[in-house]
C-alpha cells in the first residue's frame, strides 16, 4: 500500500505532475469536440452532395471533389494526415497546434461521417421523399424536414461509434508535439521512469470518456425512438 502511495505521489503530486494529465485531458476534449463538429458538418455536406448526385445526376464537379476527398482521407493513415497538415499545409503559418489537430481530425472524420450519413439517407424509403415532393415541397425542404431526420436516427449508432473512434484517435496528437491526454501521461512516464501509474491512469480516463459518450448517444437514440412505439 505504501508503495502505491509513493508511486502515486511521484507520478502525480510531485512538481504538480498531474497537470500534464489535466492539460492533456482538456486538449483531448477540445480537439475531439471541435473535430466532431467539423466532421459532422463536412460529413453531412458530402453525403448530401453525393446522394443528390446519385439520384439526379446533378452536381458532377462537386461530387467528383467529394470522391477525391473520400479516397484520400480513407486511403491514407490518419497519423500521416496529421503530420502533413502540421508540417506541410501549415508549415509557414503560425497556428496553435490544437487548431491543427482539429482541422486534421475533423477532415479525417468527415470522410467517415459522410459515408455513414449517406448510408442513412439511402436507408430512408424513396416513398418518403416522393410524398414530400408530391405535396410541393422542394428538394431542400424534403431533405431537411423528412429525409435527414430519419437518416440521422437510423445512423445514430454508427455515428456514435465514429465519435468514439475519433476520440481515441486524437491520442496520436503527440506526434506534432501537442500535449493531449496520451502524450501528457507519456511525459510523466518519461520523467518518473514509471510506466504503470501514468499510462493506466490515462487509459482509465479514456475509458470514462468513452463510456460517458456512449451513454449520451444511447440516451439520444432512445429519445429519438419514442415515436416508434
Amino acid at each position: 500500500m505504501q508503495d502505491f502511495i509513493n508511486e502515486f505521489t511521484v507520478n502525480f503530486i510531485d512538481d504538480h505532475r498531474y497537470r500534464y494529465i489535466t492539460e492533456g485531458f482538456v486538449n483531448t476534449l477540445i480537439i475531439s469536440f471541435f473535430a466532431v463538429l467539423v466532421g459532422v458538418a463536412i460529413g453531412f455536406l458530402v453525403a448530401i452532395i453525393r446522394s443528390n448526385h446519385e439520384k439526379t445526376g446533378h452536381m458532377k464537379i462537386a461530387n467528383f471533389i467529394c470522391q477525391v476527398y473520400l479516397t484520400v482521407m480513407r486511403g491514407t493513415p490518419t497519423m500521416l494526415q496529421l503530420l502533413i497538415i502540421y508540417y506541410v499545409v501549415f508549415m509557414s503559418v503560425n497556428v496553435p497546434k490544437v487548431f491543427v489537430a482539429v482541422v486534421a481530425f475533423g477532415l479525417n472524420s468527415g470522410a467517415y461521417v459522410a459515408e455513414i450519413v449517406r448510408s442513412g439517407i439511402m436507408s430512408v424509403d424513396e416513398g418518403q421523399s416522393e410524398a414530400g415532393r408530391s405535396l410541393g415541397l422542394n428538394y431542400r425542404q424534403t431533405m431537411q424536414y423528412i429525409v435527414i431526420p430519419q437518416a440521422f436516427k437510423n445512423v445514430l449508432p454508427a455515428l456514435g461509434n465514429e465519435f468514439i473512434v475519433l476520440l481515441k484517435e486524437t491520442s496520436i496528437s503527440g506526434y506534432i508535439g501537442l500535449t493531449d491526454l496520451t502524450h501528457g501521461g507519456d511525459i510523466i512516464r518519461g520523467i518518473t521512469f514509471s510506466a504503470f501509474m501514468p499510462l493506466i491512469a490515462v487509459a482509465l480516463i479514456y475509458l470514462l470518456m468513452v463510456t460517458g459518450l456512449s451513454w449520451c448517444v444511447n440516451k439520444l437514440e432512445r429519445r429519438l425512438r419514442v415515436n416508434e412505439r
Binding site: 424509403d125 416513398g127 418518403q128 416522393e130 410524398a131 414530400g132 415532393r133 408530391s134 405535396l135 410541393g136 415541397l137 424536414y145 423528412i146 431526420p149 430519419q150 436516427k153 415515436n227 416508434e228
Partner: peptide, 27 residues
C-alpha cells in the same frame, strides 16, 4: 404545380418522423 395536385400512394408514405398532425401541417 404539385401543390395543386394531391397524391396518395400505395404504401401511404406518411412521414415516419412526424406526428399525424405534423404530417398534415408540414407542407
Amino acid at each position: 404545380i404539385r401543390q395543386k395536385i394531391g397524391m396518395v400512394f400505395q404504401q401511404f408514405n406518411l412521414f415516419n418522423n412526424l406526428s399525424i398532425q405534423d404530417n398534415i401541417t408540414l407542407a
